[in-house]
Design a protein around this nucleic acid. Structure first.
Lengths: 130, 130
DNA sequence: CCGCATCCACTGTGATACTG
DNA sequence: CAGTATCACAGTGGATGCGG
């Protein structure tokens, strides 16, 4: 016989590998990924230019981030083997399709982030001062 | 005199602390956060029940995740000091306001994740086999 | 110009055991 | 029931220097 609590459980489980929330986040939630996507919103852009536009990103992390995005099919890389070489990046169609959802998140931030900061301040005050 | 490239730069820089994309992700991009929010979508829920619903989460991580959400003002915690104690969690209004954007992401996943998986497969094949 | 390799510090995560 | 404490470990991020 089951306990009264188990009867309340509608869905038996939520799994990391199944939840859609988690799957997108797995793709865009690295430290620099969102910024790199943001830098490519306007169209084709060169490696060095991305680097200049994003404050504080190292070559290593930029390369790593771009490779991941490329692997996930969100970014296209075109190499012109001149000397010195030219490497241009742009969003694929799939990458562009992510811009809509990203902008929705961005909008949420604009409207609500100050509330988050307030909440943090009052939480911290309650626990570390008083 | 400026180089021809620098003239292309519309926005001088993109910063982690300013970009809205990054700020939301900072809030929801931990491993379990999205799943916990998802578990609370239906309303008030007890600690133990969340734990039963999410596959593989440890007590430590659940507590840590809930505390962060609470600190950010997305989750409310109500303790009934009986023996044994009852602790109920629910989304705040602010937390609920995040559900819309999250569902948009979820929808994107449903429609596009298979493309991501395809891209990964062909990328990996190109680099590790051939 | 673009990127890789190496080394190191740090943090997020997990396993386990204990408590009011 | 709902946590806290401790330890161990893997992955991520950063600094630097080399290479095509």
């Amino acid at each position: 016989m089951k306990s009264p609590y188990s009867a309340k459980i509608v869905q038996p489980d939520i799994s990391l590998s199944i939840c859609g929330y988690s799957k997108v986040l797995e793709i865009v939630s690295n430290k620099w990924t969102a910024l790199v996507v943001y830098a490519m919103e306007d169209g084709v852009i060169r490696y060095g230019e991305i680097r200049r536009r994003i404050e504080g990103i190292s070559k290593k992390m930029l390369t790593q981030t771009l490779r991941q995005l490329e692997r996930n099919g969100l970014v296209k890389r075109v190499i012109t083997p001149s000397v010195p070489p030219i490497v241009e990046y742009s969003l694929t169609r799939l990458g562009e399709s992510l811009l809509g959802p990203m902008r929705v998140l961005n909008q949420w931030t604009k409207e609500n982030y100050s509330l988050v900061e307030q909440a943090r301040a009052s939480y911290d005050q309650a626990y570390y001062e008083e």
